[in-house]
Design a protein around this nucleic acid. Structure first.
Length: 492
RNA sequence: UCCCCUUUAGCUCAGUUGGUUAGAGCAUCUGACUGUUAAUCAGAGGGUCGUUGGUUCAAGUCCAACAGGGGGAGCCA
């Protein structure tokens, strides 16, 4: 097939987003897209997914045969050639006066489920394979794309190495929740067994028991202690029976891991990172964000006054760009919560008992949404409520051992980032592992980072879908991933 | 996994203290009109009231179980 011969190409179309940015001056163009509405047997609102804005195609009366007009139904796909002129109508700046029109694919109007009207997000979730054709999901997924792209750009500019950590892992040593087992052994009870009756995984595909990854962090630390700075960005799986608006069984996570970073460096990076990708979306997806902002405002009209956001979506994002996150220690947070009127009036479901307690989401929400009214970074948590690999802080008061952990809490979402400086001292790390029953032998490869040239290092994990929720204002996490996997649900 | 709410036409919803033939808007179809903007106007078709069982002379309506959906909690990202 000859290359570079544009005349032979089927697709010489101009994208509608690009076309709408030009001035209408009688130019001849070809567009392709899907019908959103067909009014008056004369006006087609054509959408090609490049933007929520439709192109108005004008059909001269009598020019096209009746049989063709009948086929211009919602979501039918069309190829149209014609000239671009200033619109005579008020809703748009240009019209495409159609010279030729070809129906590429019909769409049976009686069966097509989307209508030119408002649909509930719940209904659209049931037709997740078609919901991209709506304005809301068009905007959400274009923004999701931009955020993903910005993430790579941010780390690339900083010289981080993008590391692909394994999806299938053998380590189940982290104790981070339920895992999905990966096996080729039969499930009908005929799998080979050991003498004690347990499954003999030596006979399995990998010769051992394997699972889908719950985090790439431990592998990430291996990369960081060689490249200096790495990040992962990939799918993560949790088999927890969580049924909430912010949990998925399959989600995407970004996990940077940096050698020669302490906790403060870590917080600085996380904050800069979040701001960078929001800014990127604000600059590249302004229209989509404005649409989503309007959608959210509309949705919140149905809520009682006290449940509505104080800021609009755009306003909130600008606020995050222009204001530093509030940073405070766990210990200070407990004090604030204890002294709050909310607590004194016993309005917390879980009373603030004092130092050492795990913060409940109502406490986090109080700090973020009521007290500080901005994103908050909490750090230096009690060791007892945090993971084994977090660095033990020196010089803690007796009975108040803390670790160099930090969580970033966002309004409306809750925890969006969890990170820490890692325990780089081999002895401390091993002692801690033994204390909480994590098999030291199984993680021999991880501990090698501490054996051979250990360095202070830190990292964090950011839930991508929660970030997309924050930026798009979508309240249910199932609406920011194309095909959500949740307990009891894996359609499509 | 626990608690609460919910399920009526393709969609969004009404449906009274249990009482005759279950309604509306939008969508769809037919026709009219033709510079429309979720076009408008006229007409038509469309329902095993989530499923199963129970109470009752009588159940869309009351009760129970199950299933789907939503919200909250826990776990976390």
């Amino acid at each position: 097939m000859p290359l570079g011969k544009n005349d032979d190409m089927f697709n010489k179309r101009i994208k509608i987003r690009e076309l709408l940015a030009t001035e209408p001056a009688g130019q001849e163009v070809t567009v392709m897209g899907w019908v959103r509405t067909f009014r008056n047997n004369q006006f087609i609102a054509l959408n090609d997914g490049s933007t929520n804005n439709n192109l108005q195609v004008v059909l001269e009366l009598g020019k096209f045969p009746e049989e063709t007009l009948k086929r211009i139904t919602t979501s039918a796909s069309l190829k149209i050639t014609g000239t671009i002129v200033p619109s005579l109508g008020k809703g748009q700046k240009m019209d495409l006066n159609a010279a030729t029109l070809e129906v590429l694919g019909d769409s049976d109007a009686e069966k097509y489920p989307l209508q030119p009207k408002k649909h509930s997000l719940e209904f659209l979730r049931e037709i997740a394979h078609l919901r991209f054709r709506t304005n809301t999901f068009g905007s959400v997924f274009r923004v999701r794309h931009s955020l993903a792209f910005a993430i790579h750009q941010f780390f690339n500019e900083k010289g981080f190495v993008y590391m692909h950590t394994p999806i299938i892992t053998a380590s189940d040593a982290e104790g981070a929740g339920e895992m999905f087992r990966v096996t080729t052994l039969p499930i009908d009870g005929t799998a080979p067994k050991n003498e004690d009756g347990s499954i003999n995984f030596k006979e399995d595909f990998f010769g051992r028991s394997t699972n889908l990854t719950v985090s790439g962090q431990l592998e990430g630390e291996l990369g960081a202690t060689a490249f200096g700075e790495i990040y992962t960005f990939g799918p993560t799986f949790r088999a927890e029976n969580s049924n909430t608006t912010r949990h998925l069984a399959e989600f995407w996570m970004i996990e940077p891991e940096m050698a020669f970073y302490d906790l403060e460096d870590n917080m600085n990076l996380a904050e800069e990172f979040i701001r960078y990708i929001i800014k990127y979306a604000m600059e590249h997806n302004r229209e989509d964000l404005e649409f989503l902002s309007q959608r959210l405002a509309e949705e919140e009209k149905a809520l009682p006054q006290d449940k509505r956001s104080e800021m609009g979506l755009i306003e909130k994002l600008e606020f995050v760009l222009n204001n530093n996150f509030e940073r405070l220690t766990y210990t200070d947070a407990i004090e604030i919560l204890r002294e709050s009127n909310h607590n004194k009036k016993k309005k917390f479901q879980y009373p603030v008992t004092g130092w050492g307690m795990d913060l409940q989401s109502e406490h986090e929400r109080f700090l973020v949404e009521k007290h500080f009214k901005k994103p908050v970074i909490l750090y230096n948590y009690p060791a007892a409520i945090k993971a084994f690999y977090m660095r033990q802080n020196d010089g803690c008061a007796p009975g108040q051992q803390t670790v160099a952990a930090m969580d970033i809490l966002a309004p409306g979402i809750g925890e969006i980032v969890g990170g820490s400086q890692r325990e780089e001292r081999q002895e401390n790390l091993e002692n801690r592992m033994k204390e909480i029953g994590i098999p030291v032998e199984e993680l021999w490869w991880y501990l090698d980072t501490r054996r051979f040239g250990t360095v202070p290092h830190a990292g964090f994990g950011l839930g991508f879908e929660r970030m997309v929720q924050f930026v798009t204002g979508m309240t249910n996490i199932r609406d920011v991933i194309a095909f959500p996997r949740t307990p009891g649900s894996a359609e499509f």
